[in-house]
């Protein structure tokens, strides 16, 4: 696909020439302390140390959303990409430019559902996930069924796309940390947000 290889080239170029780098392990470990802290702080009602993993997932998503709102500006400035002509192109740009530029990984776009004009969704399969390096779930019989370790990424994509008039829904469906063979996030387009006039604008 032409737009796919173009996106890949752009991603490489931005990563090589326009991005300050840091050791990926510093990122991994910092993210780890955030998740660990949330697991300690967010506990089920009336328990001292039973983590409410659903609340952790939600908080990670919220943190990501706040990042996404700000990250999009950085993304547009560095990548110079224009408006995407289709949601398919959006998927390619997220994977090959966005993820490449910020995390130096390129998740694979797969499992398309729907066509233009109908509800559309795609999967992002992470061959490598810098956030989850060194990670081992606690063997409490719950974490592997309830925690989505990298959930912050869903929020980032949601926040970033909202700023460019796309309302999406994103969630992980598999994770190698849960014993699955792949790590996959599903991204579903809910709607394009129309430019809305402020209520009192004459």
């Amino acid at each position: 696909m032409a737009s796919s290889s173009k996106a890949a080239r752009l991603g490489e170029e931005v990563w090589k020439s326009r991005v300050d780098k840091i050791n990926a392990e510093v990122l991994t470990l910092t993210y780890g302390t955030i998740v660990a802290q949330l697991c300690r702080d967010l506990t089920l009602p009336a328990t001292a140390n039973k983590t409410d993993y659903a609340a952790v997932n939600a908080e990670l998503d919220r943190m990501g959303y706040n990042i996404g709102l700000r990250l999009i500006e950085d993304f547009l400035a560095k990548s110079n990409t224009g408006t995407c002509s289709s949601f398919r192109e959006t998927a390619e740009v997220i994977s090959k430019v966005g993820f490449k530029m910020f995390l130096n990984v390129v998740p694979q776009v797969t499992n398309w559902q729907g066509v233009e004009g109908k509800p559309q969704a795609f999967g992002l399969v992470f061959e490598e996930n810098p956030l989850a390096e060194f990670v081992e779930y606690p063997d409490d019989g719950r974490a592997q069924d309830e925690l989505w370790y990298s959930n912050i990424l869903c929020g980032v994509i949601r926040g970033a796309l909202e700023m460019v008039q796309m309302q999406i829904e994103a969630h992980f469906v598999t994770d190698v940390l849960r014993g699955n063979d792949t790590t996959e996030m599903r991204v579903t387009l809910v709607r394009y947000i129309e430019d809305e006039m402020p209520p009192d604008d004459e």
Binding site: K21, V26, I67, M101, F102
Partner: peptide, 15 residues
């Protein structure tokens, strides 16, 4: 260790 972007770290550190 591989490299990642400083901005990605900065967003997380800010969080």
């Amino acid at each position: 260790p591989s490299a990642t972007s400083l901005p990605a770290f900065a967003y997380l550190f800010n969080t």
